[in-house]
Design a binder for these strands. Structure first.
Lengths: 346, 346
DNA sequence: TTTAGCACTCAGGGACGTTGAGTGCTAACA
DNA sequence: TGTTAGCACTCAACGTCCCTGAGTGCTAAA
């Protein structure tokens, strides 16, 4: 059954009020609004019906109404208007483009910090899992006879390096040969196809130098790291400013939950995309501590192999309109920056 | 004036009790301890004197006593016994040695996470400022005619890299020449001596390629980053478990304060070194939100140029004995790991 | 010097009443 | 038929009052 225009207006007003004040909204407060020309009694009847339909809830008999998750969902999908970003918002958001960061991890983490400061909410930045990535280039740099740096460049532009110190000296020529063999043998194939058998080819071709086992170890680490997601939490303390989390236990539970990368898969529910931004409300987040919280998030892609996430976490009472507008603009900038910084697809 | 042995014993018992329970300690509770063979009245007299001396405080008339910062200081300096680490503690701490991390930032941040999980306190890891560092080696890796990776290795083993994508193609030979010139001109001098004038030498020697300005930009970023401190906060939510922070505002204030790197200098007060671990208590941390908190921390060195910090933050009521023991062991491992991973001094 | 005894203090918590915002229902009204 | 005024009812929040019990300081006796 479709809602009447009046019901929609009332619902929208209630949710807007509740978002501002965090207090249950009563019929009188709504009736006094200039845009509603009805008495409180009429509003009461409408509210009662909205409650029956599941869009509103009563914390207790003699309090006002608060929106239910379904109410928020309707608000997000249909009612909330186009947001208005101030010039200051836009300036701040554009500063993402000035992020002078070199590594993906840090870029993502810094982006989270920026968004957190911009929105005054706790943010969550999750780096992508990249199992299908391939290595494009190896390079071993000799720094001294026993000190080397190995550098790996992937096809999506992620660069990793590590210092290696060998027990016995290795000549620059040997290191160069090893670089050559690595590039011949292990580039262009998915990292998870780099099996011990395959590495044996390198071993035979390059001869056994002191470097070889260290390179093998590094590769193992590298592959493991690529297939891991990392979570960066920023502005944790901001959560505590919201009255919903004046109960410390709730705040702690939620913070614990979202800091733990193993909980991330639970958050990957499918919802509609609005301008690249998704919103999950309360129980849509499953049954954990997130069931009383909401998340406004955007995703970013590293080529075609990985998809990361950057999102805002807070009580179900969030200013969805403003937040999604800001995040949409921000994530557009972030995606552009990532595309510039890392390789585009070949 | 020196404290009598009995006063010391009483003080130690009170502080130990308070650390466990977070409740003011009364005379009767102390008197019932087997190691104290006196009546509560006697204890009361002693407690009253300890209060006069400034080691104890009363929250209000009819509560027990709680330790003052001076009391904690005495406890830390003289009274607290040798800690006993369980086998599990030691196992967990040794896992720091298994940290397979490649970059200093991440190593430090992971170390913080480990300590946080080990101790159930919020931890703070601060990376060092490294102004006097010198560059030991440059390497530009060509990945494609327009894609390059620049790698910089410092004399203390920190490696940084960045993807560079030029607007116009640059040949591998040109890149090699640039690498050579960079190594000739800019290695072995402190990074803050790399002025625009000095860079002009590179410009003249290498010819103007599309790469050159990007390298210059990268160097600027690199130098700036080297001279910055970064703060990694781990286990923020753990703070909320302590009754001292059941008042959300206090927790928020403290978390905000310690997440802000600009507040770090305030924490660098001098205190005695116990086994590499330092403890600052309450007002010893200055007048900010840390004046009601304590910190147990250790430092780590990157060669001789930089000194970082890793520490545990919590209420003044902390189990200093246990924490400092754990941190001491941990930081020993961390320092060893850093020494192995990065270059030792030449 | 130590201890027993006692009067005093005061935070914490339960019982109780008041207040006020808000609801649901009914009956009158347009 | 939809809207509104009126009214009885509900209930969380808040303040008051009192009691309880842990703890103290002081004094006098051992």
């Amino acid at each position: 059954m479709e809602l009447s225009a009046r019901k929609k207006l009332i619902l929208k007003t209630i949710i807007g009020d509740y978002i501002r004040t965090a207090e249950p909204v009563g019929s009188k407060a709504i009736a006094s609004r200039p845009e509603l020309g009805f008495s409180s009694a009429t509003i009461r009847n409408e509210m009662s019906e909205l409650e029956e339909m599941g869009y509103l809830e009563k914390p207790h008999t003699s309090a006002g109404r608060i929106p239910s998750p379904a109410g928020y969902r309707l608000y997000v999908d249909e009612l909330m208007g186009q947001p208005n970003l101030t010039a200051a918002d836009i300036d701040c958001i554009n500063s993402v483009m000035k992020l002078k960061v070199k590594e993906l991890d840090r870029m993502v983490s810094e982006a989270g910090k920026l968004i957190s400061n911009l929105t005054d909410y706790t943010t969550l930045a999750v780096t992508p899992m990249m199992q299908r990535v391939t290595i494009r280039k190896f390079q071993i740099i000799s720094v001294s006879p026993v000190d080397f740096v190995i550098v790996v460049v992937t096809d999506n532009g992620v660069v990793k390096n590590k210092m290696l110190r060998t027990a016995t000296p290795v000549t620059a020529d040997e290191a160069e040969l090893l670089t050559y063999v690595l590039n011949q043998t292990l580039t262009g194939i998915p990292v998870d196809a780099i099996t011990p058998q395959r590495f044996d080819i390198v071993r035979r071709a390059a001869g056994v130098t002191a470097l070889l086992t260290m390179v093998a170890d590094f590769l193992d680490e590298f592959i493991e790291e690529m297939s891991q997601q990392k979570v960066f939490l920023q502005g944790a303390s901001k959560l505590l400013a919201y009255p919903e989390y004046k109960d410390v236990h709730k705040a702690q539970e939620l913070l614990d939950f979202i800091s733990d990368e193993s909980n991330m898969p639970a958050l990957r529910t499918f919802t509609r995309d609005i301008d690249g931004v998704r919103i999950t409300i309360g129980p849509e987040n499953g049954t954990g501590p997130m069931q009383n919280a909401s998340m406004v998030y955007a995703t970013y892609n590293i080529g075609s192999v990985g998809r990361g996430l950057i999102g805002i976490v807070g009580p179900t009472r969030m200013d969805y309109a403003k937040l999604s507008a800001r995040l949409a603009l921000f994530s557009k900038g972030l995606n552009r920056l990532i595309a510039e910084t890392f390789f585009e697809e070949d």
